[in-house]
Design a protein around this nucleic acid. Structure first.
Length: 570
RNA sequence: GCGCCUGUAGCUCAUUUGGAUAGAGCAUCGGAUUUCUAAUCCGAGGGUGGUAGGUUCGAAUCCUACCAGGCGCACCA
């Protein structure tokens, strides 16, 4: 409908002035908030009146005068400073019900993506501990963005990048070894500040102790008195042998990854691909990109380290790729990783990061531009932190100290649907407060139940209809009996669901969709309370049933995108 | 100090990329079930949009300055 109106305006403008220079993309047509202003409106007259040496109202009159008649449009008005308002005919409005009932689960989807390949990388939490509620937001956000992209016809691959090769993993390994030694001899406590102390470290070490007994035991570990963590890592590797150290490392990482996968499954998130950082070292990808950067003078040596000239591409300073001690930095493998992504031929490469990584964006973009050469586009979306509350009490968290609420605990406490929905109700770049008490409340405070209940009520009506032998038969010629205000409101809301899907995707803002669902539920509840649907008049009854059936499809389709269930009974 | 994000009702947040009278939920107060599920509905109160300027037909939205909060400024990841 928007396109029809745009086209009418365009033709009218062409009549007024053949060389007006206004393309169809410049014509804005929007839905009206207030129905007194009609169904659609355009600001075209205000936007371009100066170009035609006219005032907005006069220009608007001119546009209308030259406009062709269209069967869909009942009335055109000029209002306010120069808005052109369009009132569509009833039949035009009813057509959406017909469309929904025909398209069913496809209503709302489109082909804008034309099946082009998109890679979306998210969560990618270090395998040094379980996922906590901070990861949850990015996880659910990424998953929903993936669904939205699919709904828009993109070919989406969801990927998790496993940082299993750096220093943090070495620290994890030592953390496990420390507990392992304490299990063997509780008197010999090895103390060191920067180690992981979570409960799960005990579980891993107990596992190792059970399966390998004393194989990894180091005599006098408690006497290791090292000044830096690097020195400590070095000494323990030497003492234990690199093979045995790696064995502990492997067991630890696998243990934690298994836990992470379990939590993701509980969250309803399924990845298509798991990409391991250590692979980049094994297959020489790192050497490859380093050579390339060296040969094309994007690097230099300074203080025994290898630096990347990221400042040349907009970063605030240059960055280290290879440290003085010959270890690679996180950045260098990450560049290799993005090089790998580029070579997999995606038109869009999306990264979803925690907001604390924003300082890192420029350096990865700098590297990306060198390798991608505009073949694909890098999109980095930042997700702000979520503060967890239990009522008014704030819960603080830290992975290192082991004080945190895991995502698994949260889901077990508030449920998958409520967790996902809550994470998605806020704009991602907005700080959010997640109140556990609120999310798990089973009453009208909770928007998830509010929406699910609206859907369940619809299902219940159909069940009742069947039991009362009120056979439902759809016939579009009775739709015109829907004349109540609530009915027209619902129809209008249903008609712009496809627009919501598009704008949620283009803006990467799933909260538009959760808001929409709430609004639709509100219309349905209001309608339900005001009007009886299962009435004796079978023509009106069938028309009303068609209306709520259409709403049911939209609830189903949107809930699928959000990743929550829509029970038929509550 | 520099950079990024944010500031809207008592609280949590929207506002369809600059549009018409800034809207929801919670909380507060008052109502509604002999009728398809009251996990619901209807109504009321509540606002100098952080502050001050600017840009234009029109600003919560864009620009500038200031105030306040969060995050970041590693040879950590």
């Amino acid at each position: 409908m928007k396109d029809i109106i745009k086209d009418l305006i365009k033709k009218s403008l062409d009549k007024i002035d053949k060389d007006n220079g206004i393309s169809i993309e410049n014509i804005e047509v929007g839905l009206c908030k207030d129905k007194r202003f009609g169904d659609f409106s355009s600001n075209i007259a205000m936007k371009f009146s100066t170009r035609f040496e006219s005032n907005p109202k006069k220009f608007a009159e001119n546009i209308i005068k030259e406009m062709q008649n269209n069967e869909n449009i009942l009335k055109i008005e000029i209002a306010g400073p120069g808005f052109i308002n369009f009132f569509t005919s009833k039949d035009t409005k009813f057509a959406v019900i017909e469309k929904i009932l025909k398209e069913k689960h496809l209503y709302g989807s489109n082909c804008l993506g034309s099946n082009s390949k998109v890679l979306i990388e998210f969560v990618s939490a270090n395998p040094t501990g379980p996922l906590h509620v901070g990861h949850g937001r990015g996880a659910v956000f990424g998953d929903c963005i993936s669904s939205l992209l699919k709904e828009n016809g993109y070919n989406v691959t969801k990927e998790y990048y496993i940082n299993d090769a750096g220093k943090q993993i070495d620290i994890l390994t030592i953390s496990v070894l420390r507990r392992y030694h304490e299990l063997i001899d509780s008197n010999k406590v090895f103390s060191y500040e920067d180690l992981y102390k979570g409960e799960y470290i005990w579980d891993i070490s107990a596992d190792i102790h059970r399966n390998f007994n004393l194989e990894f035991y180091i005599k006098n570990l408690e006497n290791y008195n090292n000044n830096s963590i690097d020195e400590l890592i070095h000494n323990i590797k030497n003492n234990l042998s690199i093979e045995r150290f790696n064995k502990i490392k492997e067991i630890s990482v696998n243990f934690i990854l298994k836990d992470i996968k379990k939590t993701l499954k509980l969250s309803g998130i399924k990845f298509d691909s798991w990409f391991s950082e250590s692979l980049l070292l094994k297959n020489n990808s790192l050497d490859l990109i380093l050579n390339y950067l060296n040969e094309n003078s994007h690097t230099y040596k300074k203080d025994d380290a290898l630096w990347f000239k990221s400042k040349d591409s907009g970063d605030e300073k240059d960055r280290v790729l290879i440290k003085e001690n010959n270890d690679h930095t996180y950045l260098s493998t990450d560049i290799a990783y993005h090089y790998n992504k580029i070579n997999r031929d995606y038109s869009k490469i999306i990264n979803i990061w925690g907001a604390d990584h924003h300082g890192y964006m420029d350096r990865i973009k700098a590297a990306f531009d060198i390798f991608a050469q505009k073949k694909s586009k890098l999109i980095i979306l930042l997700v702000q932190f979520a503060n967890l509350y239990r009522g008014t009490e704030k819960i603080s968290m830290s992975t290192r100290s082991g004080e945190f609420v895991t995502l698994e605990q949260l889901i077990k406490e508030v449920g998958k649907d409520a967790t996902r929905f809550f994470y998605l109700t806020r704009k991602s770049d907005q700080h959010m407060d997640f109140d556990i008490e609120l999310a798990k409340s089973n009453n009208n405070n909770n928007p998830v139940y509010y929406i699910q209940y609206a859907h369940a009520r619809i299902c219940s009506i159909f069940k009742q209809a069947q039991e009362n032998k009120m056979h439902y038969k759809y016939d579009n010629k009775y739709l015109s009996l829907l004349t109540e205000e609530s009915e027209l409101n619902i129809i209008k809301k249903l008609s712009y669901y496809p627009d919501v899907i598009i704008s949620s995707t283009e803006k990467y803002e799933p909260h538009l969709l959760t808001n929409y669902m709430r609004e639709l539920a509100q219309e349905i509840h209001s309608y339900y309370n005001k009007y009886q649907i299962l009435i004796a008049d079978d023509k009106l009854r069938n028309a009303r049933l068609a209306l709520i059936e259409a709403a049911k499809h939209v609830f189903k389709n949107s809930s699928k995108v959000i990743g929550i269930g829509m029970p038929e009974k509550m």
